[in-house]
Simulated scan of single mutants.
Amino acid sequence: MRRVIVLLFVFSLFLSGCQAPFSQKETKTTLLEREPVLFEPFSIPENFIPQRINVLGLGDSLTQGVGDERKEGGYFGRLTTDMEQWKGVMDVEAINLAKRGRRSDQLLEQLEDPNVQEAIVQADYIVFTIGGNDLMKVVKGNFMKMKLSDFYKELGKFEGRMDELFEILRLYNPSAPIIVAGLYNPFSVLTDEVQEFDEIIEDWNRSLEERAQRDGTACFVPVEDLFHSNTNLVYHTDFFHPNSKGYDQMEERFVEEIKSCPAVTLEVE
């Protein structure tokens, strides 16, 4: 009897066209009529994952850090130490191949070394100072009969070597930012009557800056004003190289310029 009652109830539902309140058909219709939910693609910011970066130092005694009585590696040692605190940096591998007395022609010779070429390939940042010894070569070679034309004749050769230097660096590493510092006038320590030499320094610096701009992924760091005279006691006792205080200021200038350098993607702190 109970089975008959159940069958009659089911049959009556069928005849009346009634449907269960949560039928499969209704569920499908409801899902189709809903507004689609859009999800934004998720990407990880570049500085979210700490990077291990390689910084290569090239050039002369300024990058080597000669005159730094605190033995902190000059501006290069200070800069690479500071970089470890920058946002997105896990570790800094600093390789300093600079050497006291090196001229631009000797730097080009150094770049023929396969080990140096490999260091260039691996570098995330390339930093160098060059040109001071090129100028001193002119001074020493023409001390008793110096003429302005001697410096500009050498400048023409220096410009050609700088063009070659940038070409070689870009051959082995097309994308690493290159940070190049300008020159300063060490004779301002000895006398105020050095206006002509100041103009020479300005022209050599202008040449370096133009080549950095032409590269497109390089930045120029002016330091001439930091070492004009020794009023702030920034020179080593040889009156040619910076002392620790001078290198402190030089490194601060590097950081200042790097912050505004479009080629640098790290968030400088």
Rank of each mutant, 00 (worst) to 15 (best):
S207E: 13
F220G: 07
N243A: 10
L233W: 06
G216W: 05
E209D: 10
P242C: 08
P222N: 07
E251P: 01
R170N: 13
E210N: 12
P174D: 04
V221N: 08
F166W: 02
R206K: 13
S175Y: 04
R214D: 09
D192Q: 13
H241T: 11
L208F: 07
E167D: 14
S188Y: 05
M162G: 06
E224V: 09
W204H: 02
Y235K: 08
Y184M: 07
E167C: 00
T217E: 02
E196T: 13
I178R: 00
F239N: 15
P186Q: 11
F220V: 05
L190H: 12
R214W: 01
I201Y: 04
S188A: 12
D198I: 02
V189Y: 14
N185Y: 06
V234M: 11
E251S: 13
R161G: 03
E164M: 07
P242T: 11
I168N: 01
Y172I: 03
H236V: 00
L226I: 15
R214L: 11
F220N: 06
Y172L: 01
Y247M: 06
C219Q: 07
E167I: 03
E164N: 04
L171T: 15
S207Q: 03
I178N: 01
V189N: 09
V221S: 09
E210T: 03
W204R: 07
F166P: 03
L233R: 14
Q213H: 10
W204E: 01
R214M: 01
Y247T: 10
Y247F: 14
D163N: 14
D163T: 12
E202P: 01
R211H: 11
N243K: 08
D238R: 09
Q195K: 14
K245I: 13
D215E: 07
I179C: 02
E209N: 13
E167K: 15
F227W: 06
R206G: 10
R161Y: 11
S175C: 00
P242H: 10
H228Y: 15
Q249K: 15
E199I: 04
E251T: 11
V180I: 12
R206T: 10
E167M: 09
I201E: 08
Q195R: 11
L208W: 02
L233K: 15
H236T: 02
F187V: 06
A176M: 10
V221W: 07
M250D: 03
Q249T: 00
L226T: 10
V194S: 11
D238Y: 05
D238G: 04
M250K: 06
D198P: 02
N232E: 15
P242F: 09
E202Q: 13
L183T: 09
E251N: 15
I200D: 02
I178H: 02
L171Q: 15
